[in-house]
């Protein structure tokens, strides 16, 4: 399998605070990578740097062998990397269908400087793509509901569905199950992972729930103090004594990471 993402010596500092350091990761195509770590371990900073939300202080990010370090987020999206957020980023005053339509229309817009003006937001192509995404993420019963009235799980699915509308080759999910009840978490992840497998998208997902990680990740990166302390299959990483001491048990050992 060819490498889709390669991160070399990545570092991010905020003044004296080192948020991420010495990160070296290579992700092959079609792999599902779980990212674990306590709060403040550098997981979201890592994702933010890959998606252009933050510029790294040092290091290189290669996507399909192309250097994307420090590029603006919209440019990175255009290259084929998309993301969802811990707090679902949707358009609350629009319906689910309208949200998907916007995402689909942007994805199918004509190229060039005037592409945004020359492309109608409602065309047979964008409408069909929006309907297909709604069906893929199984939120059809909410199709005409305004997004601000949606349950949390559906908001998450909509957020991820919009991120997928642009047919990315790499998708980064920041805590896709946060704010979701334990009963719903597995259902939501089943829907998401099945949809992403259908589209053959490489996935990196940040997650706190180890059961979710063990079930859905082919490979797990464990972050601690801004760097990767373990990298292997889900079994290898989660059974790593260092990971168990510093991450898995961190919530049990109050104040251990503070």
């Amino acid at each position: 399998m060819s490498t889709i993402l390669e991160v070399r010596d990545l570092e991010k500092t905020f003044g004296q605070l080192v948020a991420a350091r010495d990160i070296n990761v290579s992700v092959p195509q079609h792999q599902t990578v779980g990212v674990i770590g306590a709060n403040g371990a550098g997981k979201t900073t890592f994702i933010n740097m890959i998606t252009g939300h933050l510029s790294p202080t040092k290091g290189t990010i290669l996507f399909e062998d192309k250097d994307i370090t420090g590029k603006p987020s919209r440019e990175i999206t255009g290259l084929g990397i998309s993301r969802s957020f811990q707090v679902a980023q949707i358009f609350p005053t629009l319906t689910v269908f309208e949200n998907m339509c916007i995402a689909a229309a942007i994805a199918h817009r004509k190229p060039g400087m005037f592409g945004n003006i020359m492309t109608p937001v409602r065309s047979a192509e964008t409408t069909a793509a929006a309907e297909a995404a709604i069906e893929l993420f199984q939120i059809g019963r909410y199709r005409d509901v305004t997004a601000n009235a949606l349950p949390q799980g559906v908001r998450k699915l909509l957020d991820i569905g919009m991120a997928v509308a642009g047919s990315p080759r790499l998708l980064l999910l920041d805590e896709p199950t946060s704010g979701i009840s334990i009963e719903e978490k597995f259902d939501l992840m089943n829907v998401v992972m099945s949809a992403l497998k259908t589209r053959k998208i490489t996935v990196l997902f940040v997650e706190h729930d180890m059961e979710i990680v063990a079930r859905f990740a082919d490979r797990v990166l464990a972050f601690y103090d801004g760097t990767v302390i373990a990298d292997g299959t889900a079994h290898e990483t989660l059974d790593n004594p260092k990971v168990q001491e510093l991450i898995s048990g961190v919530r049990l050992k109050a104040g251990a990471h503070a």
Partner: peptide, 20 residues
């Protein structure tokens, strides 16, 4: 058009528009 229809999305959530 896409540019015109983005008015409400931009008003609602600029971050998502950028990440689209």
């Amino acid at each position: 058009s896409v540019a015109g229809a983005l008015a409400a999305p931009i008003r609602d959530n600029e971050i998502r528009v950028e990440f689209l």
